[in-house]
């Protein structure tokens, strides 16, 4: 595959209660969005294990995006606190490893924020496109 044909492979983990509903809303409203991502549902952003990110990167995924409820709104109270902290460490780890930390990201989208979902996704996909194929590139 040449550089031009390259299309990013992106995984988006959405929590069941807010972000997944938000993504759904964006879909139902037919908001314009890039197509390079797959949404995976987790019960809570706190259920997203950093290991998913390692595994995804190992398999050549170019970007991993986690979306949860806004801080204070988590249906398991503090799951997203945990996720937030984990991501900080994860980002540091990417730096030490020599991978652009921007390839992994966490953000918040509530059930009613279809538009916000559209905005953060569009931005993330654009950023990954800018970064180019993952240097771990297991899948290429």
């Amino acid at each position: 595959m040449t550089e031009d044909e390259w299309e990013p492979k992106i995984l988006v983990f959405c929590c069941n209660w807010c972000s997944y509903a938000g993504a759904d809303l964006a879909g139902v409203a037919r908001l314009q969005m890039p197509t390079h991502f797959r949404v995976l549902r987790v019960m809570c952003s706190g259920r997203f294990k950093p290991e998913y990110a390692f595994k995804a990167m190992e398999q050549g995924i170019d970007g991993v995006f986690v979306l949860g409820c806004h801080i204070g709104d988590c249906h398991y109270l503090e799951g997203n606190h945990r996720a937030k902290k984990r991501f900080e460490v994860l980002e540091d780890m990417m730096v030490h490893l020599g991978v652009e930390p921007g390839r992994i990201k966490i953000d918040w989208v509530s059930a009613s924020e279809g538009v916000r979902f559209q905005a953060v996704i569009t931005e993330f996909v654009a950023h990954i496109k800018e970064l180019g194929p993952s240097p771990l590139g297991g899948g290429r």
């Binding site: 390692f54 190992e58 460490v89 490893l97």
Partner: peptide
Amino acid sequence: MMADHGWVRGGSLPPKFATFHLIKAYHMAD
């Protein structure tokens, strides 16, 4: 988790870069 096939394929040598090692590293952070 390093020994769990869900995360790291059993039996391959060297373990594929880099889940095996990143699991340990991440777990050591705190």
